[in-house]
Design a protein around this nucleic acid. Structure first.
Length: 708
DNA sequence: GTGCCTCGAGTTCC
DNA sequence: CTCGAGGCAC
């Protein structure tokens, strides 16, 4: 590093020079990172450069550059782009890997819709472009916002960059007043090759593959750079709309095409699984000649009314599926097996591999799941990989499951070194030495050290500050690691986070003098912690990290009990796992014996309970109200559907009823409020009549559902 | 008891 | 993203 002057000693001219130098260095590091190649500088050095840049900018605000690595004012510093909440979630798709999965998809659709064998149902097929999804929002025909997918709910605002892509029209004629167009940004093979040649000429790093080149180009802070990059765009879907585009998927795509978007020319229609697989084969045959990367074929139900009826599962639509091409494979050497310890004490083996490129990415780690997986057995004891075990020193075949998670597919026994020994899974925790026990019927071995185990304690704390839990800005995994090991100002349990400021004050505020901290960042951290003292009950419950209590169970419990006091009292009363409080807990839909026992025993453990109490004393926990469906006529009622339903299927009826706040049960009891009886209703309808429960037919139900 | 469906937990690379 | 397992319907 050339001369680096203390910031206080810089004059304006030197400061300007320094800012230019730092902008260049940081930009270079960013590019190296996006090219997914060996980074040129370490993470620590990168952070140091950014901090120095920030400090100089703070002292000379007038000198802040247009291309400042800290980004525009008001933008979150972490990414440089503003966050955008999608009006309609951007979903991911379920996957099919073989023809059988496609058959299953088609028959699931047919049975959910209740179609007879003679009723036709059409599906579209189109190549799945390997790029990055983008949502374009048009208001009154003008492009007003472009956002990346992000996590599906919240993406990044890349409007200025999207405007530079020639396939993306800035103005639409004859479009709905509001129209969100969704599609894929990608780079063609010739453009990718030319870009990399130009990069090489300029002495800059090449991109690993077209997808990363497209992603890196779209996420440039300077739109002028994006403009110079040859990006392309295919439209294939839509989000929020003021009026429908068409009545079918294929019609909507045609409409997008007539509005001026590029749509994929290989889009087709089929009537059944056989037709879809034919389309898949045809696209697969074209794959090498397309000139852009695709990683499979997407099938969608063509009729949009059917799509609406099919609806969504928790994260994926029921009306679409991605049929993936077989994953790319690569051979490499297994150099070692390490054991990681998770928050619940689970011991997970990780393969350390000689670095190898798989599907355009360099892979050096792979998950080995558990003991049995290494031995070549699945969870039922059936052999996988023809029963071959995995040994350190083996030549192994690696692929990326779902194009993401590296896994080991196969072992080449002919290349096994003579001295390779079967892997012996540890029966003690490598972090704390406690016994590691595998419960009968369980696939994982767990450390029994509990909070004595530093690995478990740290992972629990990381979970506590994670996104869906307390989500404290400036207190991420790295800081947790640091504070956990700290002797001056330790964070060893959640309550310690909320006493940090007090303890630091008592300690003469030394934190701000520490490496990586300053006046400003310490202030921000304390403020971020203060902001989370007031927090919703469900988040607190989830943050505690009790086994089997995830986000969804935490919400169920929070809405059932409403307040911390009610919850804590109930768990206290249910501690011997019987009696009224226990029955009430078990009666919650989605809460079973295992979850309930885990929850109750966590609260009954003296040490854990004391830790929870210390935390709760620091917080103001907000009550959670049950979802307000009071306008709905069936809110809070228990409904039973019986007999055959003719205008909808059972699954649909259940989904509609639940959306209206009702509970759907399988059998009639004294707790049933309403029975919907179709033709052929037998014993259940009779029992309902005996109990004096209201019975209606399918048409009555539809008019209630329509009104609700 | 068996077979779906979802959730929880752990994981990699960016 | 995937696997394992809990919860629930049949």
């Amino acid at each position: 590093m050339s001369r680096e002057i203390a910031i206080d000693a810089l004059n304006a001219e030197e400061a300007a020079e320094e800012l230019a130098r730092l902008a260049r260095l940081i930009d270079q590091a960013n590019r190296a990172y996006h090219a997914e190649d060996a980074p040129e500088i370490s993470d620590g050095e990168y952070d140091r450069l950014k901090r120095r840049n920030q400090a100089i900018e703070a002292r000379f605000p007038d000198l802040k550059r247009a291309d400042s690595p800290t980004g525009q004012v008001g933008a979150p510093a972490a990414s440089g782009f503003q966050k955008v909440t999608h009006a309609v979630r951007m979903l991911s798709l379920g996957n099919a890997f073989e023809p059988g999965d496609v058959d299953e998809f088609v028959s699931r659709v047919r049975s959910y819709l209740g179609l007879a064998d003679s009723d036709p149902v059409a599906f579209t097929s189109e190549p799945k472009i390997d790029g990055l999804s983008l949502s374009l929002r048009y208001e009154n025909g003008r492009l007003v916002q472009a956002a990346t997918r992000g996590d599906g709910s919240v993406g990044e605002n890349v409007t200025e960059n999207a405007r530079t892509i020639s396939d993306i029209p800035l103005v639409l004629h004859g479009a709905p007043d509001l129209l969100e167009v969704r599609g894929e940004v990608y780079m063609t093979h010739p453009d990718f090759a030319a870009l990399n040649a130009a990069q090489a000429e300029k002495g800059e790093r090449a991109f690993a593959n077209p997808r990363n080149a497209a992603a890196g180009s779209l996420r440039q802070l300077d739109p002028a750079i994006t403009r110079a990059r040859p990006l392309a765009f295919f439209a294939y879907a839509w989000g929020a709309l003021s009026e429908p585009l068409a009545s079918t998927q294929s019609g909507a795509i045609d409409r997008l095409k007539s509005l001026g978007f590029s749509t994929n020319p290989l889009t087709g229609l089929a009537e059944d699984a056989e037709g879809l697989i034919k389309a898949y084969r045809a696209i697969e045959a074209e794959r090498a000649a397309l000139g852009y990367d695709i990683d499979g074929v997407v099938y969608k139900v063509d009729d949009l009314a059917y799509q609406r009826r099919l609806g969504f599962r928790s994260t994926t639509p029921r009306w679409a599926i991605a049929h993936k091409f077989p994953a790319e494979l690569a051979w490499t050497r297994l150099e070692g097996i390490d054991i990681q310890v998770g928050r619940t004490g689970a011991l997970s083996p990780v393969a350390r591999l000689a670095p190898v490129t798989v599907g355009g990415v360099v892979v050096s780690n792979a998950t080995l799941h558990n003991e049995d997986y290494i031995r070549g057995l699945d969870n039922t004891g059936q052999p996988i990989r023809e029963g071959k075990d995995i040994r350190v020193g083996d030549r192994v075949q690696v692929y990326r499951a779902g194009d993401v998670i590296p896994k080991i597919a196969d072992v080449d026994l002919t290349q096994r070194p003579d001295d390779a020994e079967p892997y012996i899974f540890p029966d003690t925790c490598p972090e704390c030495g406690s016994a590691a026990v595998r419960e009968e019927g369980d696939a994982v071995r767990r450390c029994t050290g509990g909070l004595i185990c530093p690995a478990q304690a740290v992972e629990k704390l990381k979970h506590f500050v994670s996104r869906a839990a307390f989500d404290i800005d400036g207190l991420g995994a790295r800081q947790i690691e640091m504070f956990y090991r700290d002797t001056d100002l330790p964070i060893r349990e959640p309550a310690d986070i909320f006493t940090l400021e007090r303890r630091d004050a008592a300690n003469l505020g030394k934190l701000r003098n520490r490496d990586g901290f300053g006046e400003k960042s310490v202030g921000n951290l304390f403020q971020a912690i203060e902001d989370k003292r007031r927090i919703a009950l469900n988040r607190v419950l989830f943050a505690l990290g009790i086994r089997h209590v995830g986000e969804s169970a935490a919400m169920l419990l929070a809405t059932h009990y409403g307040s911390w006091a009610a919850l804590a009292d109930a768990l206290e009363a249910a501690r011997d796992q019987s009696g009224e409080a226990w029955d009430d807990l078990i009666s919650i839909d989605g809460v079973g014996n295992v979850l309930a026992a885990s929850l109750v025993s966590a609260f009954a453990q003296p040490a854990e309970r004391a830790s929870i109490n210390r935390l709760v004393n620091e917080l103001e926990i907000m009550d959670v109200a049950a979802p307000d469906n009071t306008e709905s006529p069936v809110a809070g009622k228990t409904i039973v559907f019986t007999g055959s339903l003719e205008k909808m299927t059972r699954a649909e009826a259940k989904a509609t009823a639940e959306a209206m706040g009702a509970k759907v049960a399988g059998s009639v009891s004294a707790r049933t409020d309403l029975v919907v009886a179709g033709p052929g209703a037998g014993a259940k309808a009779r029992k309902a009549a005996e109990l004096g429960i209201e019975i209606i037919d399918e048409d009555d139900w539809l008019s209630i559902a329509g009104a609700g």
